[in-house]
């Protein structure tokens, strides 16, 4: 890359005064411009994203209800977390979300392979497959809660075929899975579209060469296709992990963590503790958020590391 340290290439032919002024500017504009361009974005980002992270970590050391003065309590919120049954339930549910959400990646890949053809109307069909992703999770949550309602769709259906009416969202053993199932629906669409793009950009020569060598079916897929889809897979995993940890909307709409906290996840539990009708425990809520943040941080660092490797190669 060319470096930009040649400020005196052109000198405008104007009065002495403006000349001198612009000359200072000319000399420094390369250095200053990026900061001027960065200023609004960086400022907003620092105020609304970076500073709040540290502020939250500090609040997690307080006992504070938002009304009366805050009391510094050290790590006692974290100590309490260790003895909080609902915390463990939520953490376990987060894990279930994370693991099951990963299914969206292979299912999305399968769908993409299935749809990567050129028959009449395939473009529209692909769009229709994709469009659950465009719809708000609130709407998806409403649709699925109605499905699961014992007076809705699945209950009466099970009843009719003799399995007995069953309320999935009211059962501590199944509520979480019911929500995950609803949540994974748009996620599959997302993964599908990533893979469709990936499949579109495959290197045809390599595939043909592979076919010439007699590779076909699974071995072709494993040895030639999949490695080429690596960027798509990476991105699919990234967005799926993030999607699984942002399970708030679905839980808030479908069960609000119920029955009795059994379908809670950290994201919703934090909100419930800190802001809901019955609890205003800002400090405790922040401690939960800090745990969630720490989990995510590993992941962010991994992602950044990968990007950094890519950048180094690019430079």
């Amino acid at each position: 890359m060319v470096s930009y340290t040649t400020p005196f290439l052109t000198v405008p032919n104007s009065t002495q005064f403006t000349y001198r002024k612009s000359s200072w500017w000319k000399r420094n504009q390369q250095r200053l411009t990026p900061w001027i361009f960065l200023f609004p974005g960086l400022l907003l980002f620092l105020v609304y994203v970076i500073w709040p992270i540290f502020n939250s970590l500090y609040i997690s050391l307080l006992q504070w209800d938002g009304l009366s003065p805050a009391i510094f309590v050290g790590i006692s919120n974290y100590v309490e977390l260790l003895d909080d049954e609902y915390f463990y339930i939520s953490l376990m549910n987060n894990l279930k979300w994370l693991i099951l959400f990963m299914l969206a990646v292979p299912i999305g890949l399968g769908l993409a392979i299935f749809l990567n053809q050129t028959i009449f109307g395939i473009r529209l069909i692909k769009s229709l497959f994709f469009f659950p992703f465009v719809i708000s999770q609130v709407v998806i949550g409403i649709i699925f809660s109605w499905f699961y309602n014992p007076r809705g769709v699945i209950g009466p259906f099970l009843d009719k075929i003799g399995l007995g009416n069953y309320a999935i969202l009211a059962d501590e053993n199944f509520a979480t899975y019911g929500i995950i199932f609803a949540g994974i629906y748009p996620q599959i669409a997302y993964c599908m579209i990533l893979y469709l793009t990936g499949l579109n950009n495959l290197n045809t020569d390599q595939i043909e060469a592979g076919r010439m060598d007699g590779a076909k079916g699974l071995s072709l897929f494993k040895n030639i296709i999949l490695p080429q889809l690596k960027p798509a897979t990476f991105l699919a995993i990234v967005v799926t992990v993030i999607g699984s940890l942002r399970s708030f909307d679905m839980v808030a709409i479908m069960t609000q963590g119920g029955p009795y906290g059994s379908s809670n996840v950290l994201a919703y539990y934090m909100f419930e503790t800190a802001l809901s009708e019955y609890g205003y425990r800002m400090g405790y809520g922040s401690a939960i958020a800090a745990v969630l943040f720490t989990i995510m941080m590993f992941y962010i660092l991994f992602f950044i590391y990968r990007m950094y490797q890519g950048e180094k190669k690019g430079l």
């Binding site: 309602n149 007076r151 069953y166 999935i168 009211a170």
Partner: peptide
């Protein structure tokens, strides 16, 4: 009532 944990209070009226 069975399945009461999945019903809002109004839904238990029908």
């Amino acid at each position: 009532l069975e399945n009461h944990a999945s019903l809002a209070w109004q839904e238990a009226i029908p």
